[in-house]
Amino acid sequence: MKFGIVRFPGSCDDVDALLAAQRVGEAVMLWHADSDLQGVDAVIVPGGFSYGDYLRAGAIARFAPMMEEVAEFARDGGLVLGICNGFQVLCEAGLLPGALLPNISLRFVCRQVRLDVMSEYSPFTRACPLGEPLSIPVKHTTGRYYAPEHGLADTQVLLRYAPGENPNGSDRDIAGVCNESGNVFGLMPHPEHAVDPLTGSSDGLAIFESIRAHVADRVVA
């Protein structure tokens, strides 16, 4: 399968996302100003500071030509994963519910967190070991997730910070959510930084492996 990673001016986790995706499949970089998805099976909107995050995190990046393609890809059921700034971009674009607000501490937070996986059926978490928390790092200043009560079903919450681990004051300990149809997923933690035991954990690989397994099943079907 082939992943496409959207690179904006100001992206900084695009290469890590590319290398992580390459551990389970092929991966190519997609330039924000282009509008050719190059036939990818899944899109990753990576972390960083797209367009400098001027105004609000993700607010300007969502108007990039490539994001229009990504939105159409998502409407057609394509898998889209947004990590950190990518999550902020997808929320601003209306592809995911809710918004990311400044951390309750008003401080940059950078540390390993434990995450509880809430669904074993999602295309993004199906390869996660059942009942075992994932250890994945967060690094952000604007990661406090907020969604109105009625705007988000419980089934859309795929990841929660384990009890006592919430690093930013997110509503209901939410770390990652998907859209109603389940094919767009955003999370603040960085699975692409947790793919090798050398750097502390390889739990993040399960997210990429889940996507690969889902696409493989779809091809067979």
Binding site: L101, P102, N103, I104, S105, L106, R144, Y146, G169
Partner: peptide, 10 residues
Amino acid sequence: GILDPQGQAV
């Protein structure tokens, strides 16, 4: 209804 930590700090 949206928590404003900046406002709280001030």
